[in-house]
Design a protein around this nucleic acid. Structure first.
Length: 428
DNA sequence: TCTGGGGTCCTAGGACCC
DNA sequence: TCTGGGGTCCTAGGACCC
């Protein structure tokens, strides 16, 4: 009787390479030899670069206006972010992965953890990683890298190395402990999942510079000096899995909708329009996950980068009498909050709303103390959501208005190739 | 002129209580 | 005159992630 190779727990992290840039290039084969970058909302800064663009001195997060001349000089193709496109391609990638492995955790728009333990077709782990890579490439035309290891943190690290070192051909299996030590010793501690800039600084002050040095630190000491989270990371780096695969996506505990303005806002009426739009977006998300909010906040702020004017920012929040997901109820409450914090004078650069203390509609049906929203309200909101799903922006609260200078800039938006019939790409 | 948005989790410290 | 100590709960803020 043969014993399965992978009786022990084993994770793979599949991560799309330069996801947003790859998505844009998918429908523009003419850009194959040209560097491609994607901008953040409002065309603010660079948030994705293809491999060619990474060779240029354009750092991640660079403000667009600062690198504009350089982009022009190198004939870089620039795109505003197109989340309709990325979201749709993302879900296709995830569906493909779900066919390849029974247990998949969608970790972000471009990453998923897979549990490989017990995958029958998976005898050699590296071969299986290559199979994943080729399948996504063939079916969707998107490049991915695969990291394989006995813990999620190590799988992340394996993925980092698979991307960084070409000799691995996009797949690295770190279940072997010799190979693991070799890679850990060459990985800066800041590249470890869970170690950001601040922690890296503190660790370096203790002469912990590499992932291997962190792996060899005493978890108890780390827990005392730092936190339980970093102590867990130390264990994970040693191949002790402390983090499980989360297959079910829990409803969000907080919903935020906020934007920087295309142009500074000085008038209260424009701010009211913007807040009304944001609250509608947030309420839509709330209803999509069948939740209600008990608490909401509104914030407004000027620009932190403005040299001439003093920074101004404020926020206010309130608790609703009974939890709600009705756009009209939330909008009225948001307008009250705005009245409390609004000041004439500042040039506002950004505003947003936050919904907190969320609960599920079902959980509330039986509660005596907080009656659930009325049938009428629920039906109305469901109808609005349906209409807006078909045609975005067909039904909205009048206060929102149709257009405003404050709306975000998207000067380089690609068509919604995959989600709108009228924008399907034409092939000649 | 122009510097993103949306999340999670943990900890420290204050308020309050006995 | 003398001004405790321990526990819980909540919130704000920090750090991290993509």
């Amino acid at each position: 009787m043969s014993v399965p190779l992978n009786t022990k727990r084993c994770f793979a992290l599949v991560d799309c390479n330069n996801f947003y840039a790859s998505c844009e290039r998918l429908f523009r084969p003419d850009l194959k030899q040209r560097p491609v970058v994607v901008l953040s909302n409002n065309d603010g800064c660079i948030i994705a670069r293809c491999a060619l663009a990474k060779q240029l001195p354009i750092p991640m997060g660079a403000p667009f206006h600062q690198v504009k001349p350089l982009l022009k000089q190198h004939r870089v193709a620039v795109f505003s972010s197109n989340y309709a496109l990325y979201g749709d391609l993302s879900s296709r990638v995830m569906q493909t992965l779900e066919q390849l492995a029974p247990k998949v955790e969608i970790y972000s728009i471009d990453e998923a953890f897979l549990e490989l333990s017990g995958v029958e077709s998976c005898q050699d782990l590296t071969d299986f990683g290559q199979h994943i890579r080729q399948t996504i490439q063939q079916q969707l035309g998107l490049p991915v890298c695969v990291g394989i290891a006995p813990s999620k943190t190590l799988a992340k690290l394996a993925n980092y190395a698979a991307k960084k070192y070409p000799q691995f051909d996009g797949v690295l299996d770190l279940t072997d402990s010799h190979k693991r030590l070799h890679i850990l010793a060459r990985t800066p501690v800041q590249e470890v999942w869970g170690v950001g800039r601040k922690l890296a600084e503190r660790l370096q002050a203790m002469n912990i510079d590499t992932a291997l040095q962190l792996a060899r630190a005493c978890p108890e000491q780390i827990r005392k000096k730092f936190s339980v989270v970093l102590a867990r990371t130390v264990n994970e780096l040693n191949g002790i899995a402390c983090l499980a695969l989360d297959e079910v996506q829990e409803p969000k505990q907080q919903i935020i909708s906020s934007r920087s303005f295309g142009q500074r806002v000085k008038e209260k009426s424009a701010m009211q329009q913007a807040i009304t739009l944001y609250i509608s977006r947030a309420a839509e998300k709330l209803r999509a996950q069948h939740s209600l909010a008990r608490q909401l906040s509104v914030f407004i702020r000027s620009s932190r980068f403005d040299q001439k004017a003093r920074f101004f920012g404020d926020q206010a929040s309130l608790v609703l009498e009974s939890p709600s997901s009705d756009s009209r109820v939330l909008q009225q409450a948001a307008m009250q909050l705005l009245d409390r914090i609004w000041r004439d004078g500042p040039s506002y650069a950004k505003a947003g709303v936050v919904l907190n203390d969320l609960c599920s509609v079902q959980g509330l049906q039986s509660s005596l103390f907080s009656p659930p929203p009325s049938e009428r309200s629920q039906r109305l909101m469901a109808t609005i959501d349906q209409l807006n799903q078909k045609h975005r922006g067909s039904v909205f609260i009048a206060r929102q208005g149709r257009d405003g200078d404050w709306q975000m800039q998207q000067r380089f938006l690609s068509p919604a190739y995959t989600t709108r019939w009228d924008q399907l790409p034409e092939v000649y």
